[in-house]
């Protein structure tokens, strides 16, 4: 076995050259590629996590929207029910009012007709009674004074009635 000091130096020099060459031409690019892949994977994982969060958020939002829609529908139904109730009531009230008005009108009409009839009857009776009286008396009574007389009489009768 020999121990040559030159071997030691040769190996050191060769090793250092090899180290420099590998570092410069092989490992440097390889490390950067590995680093890039690491970053890519990290980025993708981040993205996946983000997407998942977004999805969860969307689902939450959807749920909330659905809840809201359900509530809105309920409200609308409720409102419709209330409106219909109040409308029905209103209609009934209107109908009642209308009928009352019609009734009153009818009563008033009857009254006026009655009054008219009474007035007509009164004048008729006056004239007839004058004619009767004149027929009976065979003489001409002043029709004006006679009418006055009958009128007074009828009024008395009317009050008594």
């Amino acid at each position: 076995m020999h121990f040559e000091w030159t071997n030691l130096v040769i190996v050191i020099v060769a090793f250092l050259i090899l180290y420099w060459l590998l570092n410069r031409y092989a490992f440097g690019p390889l490390f950067s590629v590995m680093e890039k892949r690491r970053e890519l994977i990290k980025q993708q994982m981040d993205e996946a996590a983000q997407t998942r969060n977004q999805a969860t958020q969307f689902v939450e939002e959807q749920k909330a929207a659905l809840q809201q829609a359900r509530k809105d529908a309920q409200d609308i139904i409720e409102q419709a029910r209330q409106t219909s109730n109040s409308q029905a009531e209103q209609l009934i009230n209107q109908a009642k009012e209308e009928s009352l008005r019609l009734k009153n009108e009818a009563a008033r009409d009857i009254e006026t007709e009655k009054n008219k009839a009474v007035a007509a009857l009164r004048s008729e009776i006056g004239a007839v009674s004058v004619q009767i009286a004149s027929k009976v008396l065979q003489k001409e009574v002043d029709p004006k004074a006679q009418e006055q007389l009958v009128d007074n009489y009828l009024k008395d009768v009317g009050i008594r009635q």
Binding site: H2, E4, L8, I10, V11, I12
Partner: peptide
């Protein structure tokens, strides 16, 4: 021996 020692020496 010398070359192995060279590596160790580095």
């Amino acid at each position: 021996a010398a070359s192995a020692m060279g590596l160790a020496l580095i």
